[in-house]
Amino acid sequence: MYSEKTLNRFRKPKFSGEMKKADAVGEVGNFKCGDIMRIYLKVKNNIITDIKFKTYGCVAAIASTDMICELIKGKTIDEANKLTSKEVVKKLGDMPAVKIHCSVLGLNALKEAIGNYKKKHKKN
């Protein structure tokens, strides 16, 4: 059902964990839909220098959030904001159709974090 790449990400996520002094945090989802993603960002000069995630969800949910983290580390926040679910799924070597929404949800968490960062940044 899952690609080897997806399974490997699920088995050994590289970016799971908390971040004590994050510059921004984004969280989406609920227990009803079965997925909750939280993304922590560290941003320096508009560049995402560090990223961590916590995910409550299935194999696809955990693997996609981890892949999202890898794809945006070192990117500017505007570049990160443009990441699409298609790119994430492609990097994971495809995914069952019903699981595509997991990658969308992960991206929503990222966008939420970026939105929060931008709001905070404007005020300062």
Partner: peptide, 14 residues
Amino acid sequence: KGIEGEAIGGDLND
């Protein structure tokens, strides 16, 4: 509590 069944099944399968 706090974890999802399909992921548990995935880990058990491993």
